[in-house]
Write a protein that binds this DNA or RNA. Structure first.
Lengths: 355, 355
DNA sequence: CTCGCCAGCTAATGCGCATTAGTCGGGAGG
DNA sequence: CCTCCCGACTAATGCGCATTAGCTGGCGAG
């Protein structure tokens, strides 16, 4: 029955011209009826109905590429990640983001394009020009840290609507939606201070991402707000937590009067891991002898352990916020640099009044 | 309204025409040099160099939309699910499918469009015509059971490339990739028989999906292969497992000589849940007194329980297989009705020789 | 010295759609 | 009765690129 067409993708796909023929009108009219018709051209109701019916009959759907080329909208939001969007590890954080992204996008009538495929021929997301594919969508969400800066700047300069998940300063003018780590960190410190802790130490990894420095800033602000001095050694920075955060180190700090330790959350969770291990090795009971807190969520493999005092990043909400920001940009809103979402305090069981 | 700036996205982006002018050649030549030039047209090396230089100088980047328009394909695979693609429950089975789908799609140079049910203006995936939106992609993967049959048939009839995840007979000509439940179920029965069980009962829910009947078919085939009679009552079908599968029922079966119970896996996992509860309430030890097996994976909330004997569905592999099938169709391959992926036997700890 | 041929290009066309200039028939105004 | 305008469309154009027909100039064969 069906002849073999050369272009498989086009086989049964109706165009506006076919809808037009069926409705007995011109292609222009079809475009006017089905597209926005922002020109305010008047079309008779009966004609309108005929076109609508014909479109429905044929199952017409606009071609996103043609639409974009003609400088219109697609109702398509891109999601570009610099690693696999669906990693094998189920608990990977991207998933939670996507939950929020999808919900918010759906609510606003957008579909999602996952730019995961290497249209560049299997070279992956890192390939030069890989980022340019997103131009097919109306705008794009960016996930992950290791963004090809050059390509990104180019998109930003061209005015392509882009929103990064996570605070990001680097390409000037890039919008972002991030979690308010500073406020959340300060709150955790405030909680510890409220319990009676006077000397608190933050262990952070050797990472200069905004996420890390925001936590440190919040930590120090929290100390100040509680009237505690931000003395030397209040922040410990290490590139190799496992090696540097030892039982001996913990004992020494404890002897100095430190009664609470705080770790930052990172991709690996190494700071928290090392801190827990060291305190345990030092024979100090948690939370009786010392209190611990984690500025973020514990790694998945530690989920069966006692719940750490700290805060949770509302990933889904963050994804939704990013979508709102992006759709705002699409609607022509002013380019606000970023938007912060509050984290929620998690009481946990690793903090108690000092002995 | 006042005139709007000529689309911000286009502002400074050079086109092939500009590269051509700078290089002193025609746009065609630029396309030939920068594009694939699959026509084998010969271009002098010097000209080539000039074009390349000019392109680099201007920072030329091809417009994906134009490229796709001209090529009449979008390099886009749709994923349509009849429920939210990202349910809040992390352990939802779709996620695993997506892992495989994404990987395979990426490897083949396709991006993914998630038809999350928007497009129709928030009406959701159930809205009439919602399915039509997938025509935007080159082809589409279908997830979930409750497919609007009418719309589906139309797409199939139009020759739109579609692959359903899970065996599916209904619209003739619809391709699918499914797990081989029959073989896996037979293998589980064989395992039980091998342990010495002579009377085995299958508890299934009241569902006429192929997934259910395949399991039953495999179960019966397994019995036959082991030389066991498929007597009456070997298969119990219930719409309300919690109410029908009681301790009394289990005791009665046990008294009749039944030493092994098998449950099918469903969305809710109710059959398995009821079976476990009933056996426990009957005071029968597992696997000492009776053996249990599950034709599939346990629900996520039971993941800390003893591992059920049964089989695992290779979801990621299934997703990948579906993508392979779909890309095959796009490449013009013959429409094979379906492809089966083998499940892997899971020994578990709920089956042992009968007392 | 033609003719044919081929290497090396270019002009023209079309993809599917949005948009911008019309076109056309018929009342209102003069 | 003729003009003008207006409502309701349609023809034509272009987006940026790929592709397909040319076109041209030189050179070996006849």
């Amino acid at each position: 029955m069906a002849e073999k067409e050369p272009k498989a993708a086009r086989r049964g796909r109706p165009r506006q011209a076919e809808v037009a023929r069926l409705a007995g009108v011109s292609q222009t009219t079809v475009s006017l009826v089905l597209g926005g018709n922002k020109q305010g051209i008047v079309i008779q109701e009966a004609t309108r109905e005929r076109v609508l019916l014909a479109a429905r009959t044929l199952g017409y759907v606009p071609d996103p590429a043609a639409r974009r080329l003609a400088a219109a909208r697609n109702n398509l939001l891109g999601v570009f990640s610099f690693t696999a969007t669906f990693p094998t590890a189920v608990e990977h954080s991207y998933y939670r983001f996507l939950v929020g992204i999808e919900q918010e996008a759906a609510a606003r009538g957008y579909d999602l394009v996952l730019f995961t495929g290497s249209s560049t021929g299997g070279a992956g997301a890192g390939a030069p020009g890989a980022l340019d594919r997103v131009r097919l969508a109306d705008g794009c969400l960016l996930l992950g840290r290791h963004v090809p800066a050059e390509q990104l700047r180019r998109l930003v300069d061209d005015g392509f609507p882009l929103v990064h998940l996570g605070r990001r300063d680097e390409p000037e003018g890039l919008a972002w939606a991030g979690a308010d780590y500073a406020a959340a960190s300060a709150e955790v410190v405030g909680h510890l201070a409220g319990l009676g802790h006077r000397r608190i130490v933050l262990v952070r990894e050797d990472d200069d991402a905004p996420a890390s420095s925001d936590r440190q800033r919040g930590f120090l602000a929290g100390l100040a707000a509680a009237g505690l001095p931000g003395r030397d050694g209040a922040v410990v920075r290490t590139a190799r937590p496992a090696a540097d955060i030892t039982a001996a180190w913990v004992r020494a700090r404890h002897a100095e009067g430190v009664t609470a330790f705080v770790a930052e959350e990172t991709d690996t969770g190494d700071a928290w891991r090392a801190l827990r291990a060291a305190v345990a090795a030092a024979g100090l009971a948690v939370p009786e002898a010392v209190s611990l807190a984690l500025l973020g969520s514990p790694p998945a493999d530690l989920s069966d352990q006692p719940v750490p005092t700290g805060f949770d990043i509302p990933r889904a909400e963050l994804g939704a916020a990013a979508v709102r920001l992006l759709t705002g940009l699409l609607a022509g809103a002013e380019q606000r640099s970023g938007s912060l979402v509050a984290c929620t305090f998690r009481p946990g069981t690793t903090a108690a009044p000092p002995p």
